[in-house]
């Protein structure tokens, strides 16, 4: 019985590893969103021209072309400030899900697919883009789980003191 418990513990992350792993994921998400926002602002005309070609959002192209990079910067700020990492990750997952739904709907219904991606990933096809987005959603969800688990553990430790 004792040996079973020991071998189970071997596969568990220590608190420090959990914290570092979650923080590494937060920094990766931050880098992705900031490069993406920078590209969208730097090449704003190209980004807006792409949106204008999409039938069901062309009327709001100007609004969307500014809202998306601003939202990415706001989420990035949450990801920079340590106390708001959790909210930053929630925002990251939410925005990535919106982008994924947009790409999915474009793949299903749009005849022409404009390309106005982040410079890091603009060589990806639209199908690969969906997989890339979902992988990052999974990564951010994993980081959230690690953060919540750490908070839960420290709560138990605090209660044990009393």
């Amino acid at each position: 019985m004792a040996s079973t418990i020991i071998s189970k513990d071997k596969f568990q992350f220590t608190d420090t590893i959990r914290e570092h792993l979650a923080f590494g994921i937060v920094l990766t998400c931050l880098f992705l969103f900031l490069t993406s926002a920078y590209t969208k602002i730097e090449e704003h005309d190209r980004f807006m021209n792409g949106l204008l070609k999409v039938a069901f959002i062309s009327h709001y192209a100007w609004l969307i072309s500014w809202t998306v990079p601003v939202a990415e910067i706001v989420v990035s700020l949450f990801l920079i400030i340590p106390k708001t990492h959790k909210w930053g990750l929630y925002g990251f997952i939410g925005l990535m899900m919106v982008f994924t739904i947009y790409i999915g709907s474009m793949l299903l219904w749009s005849e022409k697919l404009p390309c106005h991606c982040n410079l890091l990933i603009e060589k990806l096809s639209w199908g690969e883009h969906v997989v890339f987005n979902l992988a990052f959603v999974g990564l951010a969800a994993f980081a959230l789980w690690l953060i919540k688990n750490n908070q839960y553990k420290s709560l138990i430790k605090q209660n044990d003191k009393y």
Partner: peptide, 11 residues
């Protein structure tokens, strides 16, 4: 915070 700012500058 410093690491976050460093990554932002790098990005």
């Amino acid at each position: 915070l410093a690491s976050g700012l460093l990554v932002a500058v790098l990005a």
